[in-house]
Write a protein that binds this DNA or RNA. Structure first.
Lengths: 240, 240
DNA sequence: ACCTGAACACCGTTCAAGT
DNA sequence: ACCTGAACACCGTTCAAGT
C-alpha cells in the first residue's frame, strides 16, 4: 500500500564483513549479497537524481536483477528506502563524531550543518525521512536517536564555548536545518550563493547573542527568481 | 502521468460572481459551477487532513459526483491541487496586504509569519507547491510573484523601521519560513511550544542585530522526542 | 453542455515455476 | 536458497454512452 509502516529492524543494513557468529541477519549467499548491494547502489543513485518516486522496476533493471529479487531483499519499496536512509544516517553520525575532536567547538557544529547542506542533494531520502511517519519505524528511530545523541554533544560543546545560544537544543537545530535544506533543494534554479545565505540564516538563528555576521551574497530579486526558473521542470510526482 | 507540467492558466480559479462579459473562463452551467465548488471543498478538506496522496475517487465520492466530472473540471489531479493552491495563495496575499496598514512594521511582518505557521496545517498544499516543479506552472507562478511583491513591501517597511536586518530579502524569508513550517508540520507529536520555538528561531535569524529574544518554551529532550512518538503513524505515502 | 461508470495504463507487490 | 517474470490490485485518466 506504500504507506509508512513499522517494518521491524530485521537485517538492519550493515552488510559489510559480518562476523561469522553474529546475531541478527543470517549470512546471505554470495550472489544474494551482491544483488542486495547492487539494488542499494542503484536505488541510491536514482533516488538522489530524481527523488523517491522512481519505480521499482527501473531500480531492479538498473541493478541487473528481476523485480522479484528486489522484493526478496526488501519486503517493500519503503524498506528499501529505509535501508538507504539508515546508511546515510550512519555516515552523517560518523562525520559528526569526528567533529567532536575539532579544536573550535562552535565551528565544529557549523561545519556539520554545512556538510548537511552540501549533502542534502544526495541525501535527500534522509531528509525526507525526518518526519513522524518514518521515525516511528524501529530501524530509523534507532539511528535517529544516535544522531541526536551526537548532535547534542556537539551543541553542548559549542554552548560551553559561548558560540551558540544557551536556550537551544539538538532537536531544535535538527528540525530547523532539515527544513532549510529541503526548502533550498527544491529551488535549485537559484544560484549557489542562495544556499549559503540560507545556511547563514540558520547560523544567525542559533548563534549566541553578539555573534552576528552579514549574510553571504545578496538577496535574490523577484526578477532573478522569475528568470532563472527551469524551462520545463518536471520532477515532483503528485502521486502515481 | 501525475508529474508537474505546465497546465496553462485557463479557467484560473476565481469562480465567484463572474461578470457576464468577462474574458477568459466561460460561464459554467449552474450545476457545473456547484460541482466545481464541491470538488474544491472536498479536496481541500481531505488534502489538509491526509495529504495530497488521497485518491481522486474518494474526492469525487465526497463531492457527490462521478470521477469523470472531476476530470471535466480539472484536466488532472495536479490541476485540482493547483486550483486549491491558488486560492490559498490569494488568501495569504490578502492577509499580508492588510498587515501593510499596521502600526508596527516589524510586528506586522512577524504576524504574517505567525499566520503562516498557524495555517501550515490547512495550507499544506500551498507549502508543498513552493518548489521548482510547481512554480513553473503559469497559474502558480503568477500568484507566487504577487506573494513576493506583498512580502517585499512588508519586509522593506520592517527594515526601514529597523526591526529586520538590512541584508535580507523577501525570497530569503519566504524560503526559510516554508522550510520551517513544513519541517514542523511533519513532527506534530511534539507539543505546541515546539512550533513557537521554531518560529522564534526564524525571527532570530531575520531580526536586526541587537533585537535578540529568548526562545519560548524549552528545548525538547531526546527522551521526550522518543516518548511522544505516535503509536502507529501512517501518513506519508512513498508513491502509489 | 454536462454527467457517469466501465475500461485502460501504470506501478507496487505476490507467487508459481524455475535453477 | 535464491531468481524470475507473469499475474494481481490499486489509482490516475480517458471515453463512449447517457441526460
Amino acid at each position: 500500500m506504500a504507506e509508512i509502516t513499522d517494518g521491524g529492524a530485521s537485517r538492519a543494513g550493515d552488510g559489510e564483513n559480518v562476523a561469522p557468529m553474529e546475531e541478527g541477519p543470517r549470512r546471505l549467499r554470495a550472489d544474494a549479497e551482491r544483488n542486495r548491494r547492487r539494488l542499494l547502489d542503484a536505488a541510491t543513485e536514482v533516488f538522489s537524481e530524481r527523488g523517491l518516486e522512481v519505480g521499482v522496476g527501473e531500480i531492479a533493471q538498473r541493478a541487473g536483477v528481476g523485480r522479484g529479487t528486489l522484493f526478496r531483499n526488501f519486503p517493500s519499496k519503503e524498506d528499501l528506502i529505509a535501508a538507504i536512509v539508515v546508511e546515510r544516517f550512519r555516515e552523517s553520525i560518523a562525520r559528526g563524531a569526528a567533529l567532536l575532536e575539532a579544536d573550535d567547538p562552535g565551528e565544529a557544529l557549523f561545519t556539520l550543518l554545512d556538510q548537511a547542506l552540501t549533502r542534502s542533494e544526495t541525501d535527500r531520502a534522509l531528509f525526507e525521512a525526518l518526519d513522524d511517519a518514518w521515525l516511528c519505524r524501529k530501524d530509523i528511530g534507532a539511528v535517529h536517536t544516535e544522531m541526536l545523541t551526537m548532535l547534542d554533544a556537539l551543541v553542548r560543546r559549542a554552548q560551553e564555548a559561548g558560540a551558540v545560544r544557551a536556550d537551544i537544543g539538538a532537536v531544535d537545530i535538527l528540525v530547523l536545518v532539515k527544513g532549510m535544506c529541503e526548502a533550498t533543494r527544491s529551488l535549485r534554479h537559484l544560484d549557489g550563493d542562495f544556499e549559503l545565505r540560507q545556511l547563514d540564516l540558520v547560523r544567525a538563528a542559533i548563534c549566541a547573542p553578539g555573534h552576528q555576521r552579514p549574510l553571504r551574497g545578496r538577496p535574490p530579486t523577484m526578477h532573478e527568481f522569475e528568470l532563472r526558473r527551469p524551462p520545463a521542470g518536471r520532477s515532483a510526482a503528485v502521486s502515481g
